[in-house]
Every structure is written in C-alpha cells, then in structure tokens.
C-alpha cells in the first residue's frame, strides 16, 4: 500500500514503526496506524511540527485553548520524556493504558499518578483540595470551604486506612476496589473501534500486509 499526499513520517520526531509499537502494546498494527491519523490531526492543529504541545492537546479536548488543571495533569503523564511535547510513541503507549483490555493494575497505577500531582508517592489532602477547587471553578457547582473540608474528611477517613493524612499506593488500590466507578475515566471504549473511526489509515499505510 503506497503512501501519498501526506507528510513523510520521518518528519514526525519520535515516530516509531507501527509493527514495533503494536508489539509493545495491546493495539494491532492497523490500530496503531489509525491512531497515527488521530495524532496527525492533533499535532498539526497549531504548529505543524509532528508533536503535540499542551495547547494542541487542550484544543483537541475542549475545542478551545483554555487552560485546565486536569488536562495538564494528563498531558504531563503522556509526556514521559518531560520535554513539554508528546511524540507519536508517547501517545500510543499512554493511550494503551486506557484500552478496555488492559489489566486493572496498570489503570490503578496511572490513576494514582494522576492524583499524586507532586510525585511524592502519596496523594495528599492539599492535592485533592486543589483539584476539588479546580473542578468547582470549571463547573457550576458551588460549595463552601466548610463543605469542601467535610468532603475531604469523609474521603480521607474512607481511603487513608492508616490515618497518616495521605493516601499511599496500597490504600489507593484498596479504595478503588471498593469504589470501582473511580476507574471509569481510565477506560476509553473508543479505542476498540479506532480503525472504524479513522478508516483513512488504509490510504496512508506503510505496512504491506495489514494485520487486524
């Protein structure tokens, strides 16, 4: 299958062969190529440099460039090389965690990191408060500081089993096993239909025999 009317893949820094990425993830080669179609559209939306920067990520999430604490947090975890940009291999490996067939253990790990904003190995009360305040500012929910403190008291009395004021990895695993809906954000059913959502990958494929 030839490649035509598209920017050469060598112009995408961090581009990795779909066969190699498929072997490291739960995605098939075709699915990796379909993800490349999505990656191309996001990475070329503001600066056509073959990488996704924070602004492009926010634009893809919200259709606007508004800054958002939660989107920033996801972006930082996708940006594993800490360069302020996401390359194609980062993108595929990070989305892999969100695949419906990935073991819960990996999803629990990722979600723990999501909430452990300062990377101390603990989810601390001040981090959770900061996120609650950010949530209120993006929604129409209005809660008094007293109510926020009550919610934090209740949450930490449930989750922080040893009552040391912070949630460690084992406490988090225990807490989400009792509250499985908290992991809903960690699974994207879209990833099962990615080749249907981006069928144009077939025209841009660089792999001779597409394995589905």
């Amino acid at each position: 299958m030839g490649c035509f009317h598209s920017k050469p893949r060598r112009q995408y820094p961090g581009y990795e062969d779909p066969i190699s990425l498929a072997s490291q993830t739960t995605f098939s080669v075709s699915e990796v190529e379909a993800l490349f179609e999505l990656f191309k559209s996001i990475s070329g939306s503001v600066i056509d440099d073959g990488l996704i920067n924070k602004e492009e990520f926010q634009l893809a999430l919200f259709k606007s460039k508004k800054d958002n604490l939660f989107a920033n947090r996801i972006f930082d975890l996708f940006d594993v090389k800490k360069r302020g940009v996401i390359d194609f291999a980062d993108f595929v490996r990070a989305l892999n965690v969100f695949h419906p067939s990935i073991p819960m253990e990996e999803k629990i790990d990722f979600s723990f990191k999501l909430y452990d904003m300062d990377n101390t190995g603990f989810i601390e009360r001040n981090e959770v408060k900061q996120m609650l305040v950010a949530l209120l500012s993006e929604s129409e929910m209005r809660l008094s500081d007293e109510t926020i403190e009550t919610i934090l008291d209740k949450t930490f009395s449930d989750a922080d089993v040893n009552q040391d004021g912070k949630i460690d990895r084992a406490e988090w695993e225990n807490f989400v096993s009792r509250n499985p809906s908290l992991l809903k954000i960690m699974t994207l059913p879209y990833l099962k239909d990615i080749t249907t959502t981006f069928p144009s990958f077939v025209f841009h494929s660089e792999v001779d025999d597409i394995v589905t």
């Binding site: 999505l38 939660f70 999501l114 996120m131 950010a134 919610i151 954000i185």
Partner: peptide
C-alpha cells in the same frame, strides 16, 4: 448521596479527564 461525599468521584467528572473528547470529530 454517598458519591457526593467522595472527593475523587467529584474530581473524575472534570472534562479535563475525559479523554473520549479526543476521539470526537
């Protein structure tokens, strides 16, 4: 509702955590 007293259940409602939006054309 018990969920309204769970800070993480509230936080996970943020649109910033909804990566499904990346797939909406």
């Amino acid at each position: 509702k018990p969920e309204s007293m769970n800070a993480f259940a509230l936080i996970s409602r943020s649109q910033g955590f909804n990566l499904g939006n990346l797939f909406e054309k």
